[in-house]
């Protein structure tokens, strides 16, 4: 783990803009051995909890541990699937309902690797990345979101 190459930056402040997603796709036009892209976009949902609508999620993380985990997930995905490239972006801070908070982008020669790797990466992030979402209601109160997977002890 000590000599691994420098981890790529995953966290971005605030929402991920659709323009950034579009530009990321455009950048791959020069890589002409790619035959398939798979993209996952996580969007903040306006869940109703006890009659109150979620207006935003405020994300925080254990940054150092999360960056290591993202790096590990990236390395595992490259091992497991034949990928040409891979990009992972996750928001930190406030993201309004309807905005994008997670962008996973995998590319491969044939579609199967890109599609399966994309799902694999998203599931690993949800389950293992030390990131927390504080769901904020319109009256300013909040609850802490919980994913369906938890590291427990």
């Amino acid at each position: 783990m000590m000599e691994e190459k420098k981890a790529k930056k995953v966290f971005v402040k605030g929402p991920i803009s659709p323009l950034f997603v579009g530009e990321s796709i455009a950048k791959h036009s020069t890589k002409q051995d790619i035959g398939a892209h798979s993209i996952f976009l996580g969007q903040v949902r306006n869940d109703i909890i006890d009659g109150n609508a979620v207006v935003a999620i405020d994300y925080s993380a254990y940054n150092e541990m999360a960056e290591e985990k993202f790096h590990e997930i990236r390395e595992d995905a490259f091992q497991k699937y034949s990928l040409t490239c891979m990009h992972i972006y996750h928001s930190l801070g406030r993201v309004e309902a309807g905005e994008i908070s997670l962008f996973v982008f995998t590319s491969s020669i044939h579609r199967k690797d890109a599609m399966e790797a994309c799902t694999y990466i998203v599931e690993r992030i949800k389950e293992q990345a030390p990131v927390w979402g504080r769901e904020v209601f319109d009256d300013g109160r909040h609850v802490w979101k919980q994913n369906n997977f938890n590291e427990t002890q």
């Binding site: 999360a66 996750h90 949800k126 979402g133 994913n147």
Partner: peptide
């Protein structure tokens, strides 16, 4: 101390 994760 890490409460249940809720990223993504």
């Amino acid at each position: 101390l890490l409460p249940p994760f809720s990223g993504g």
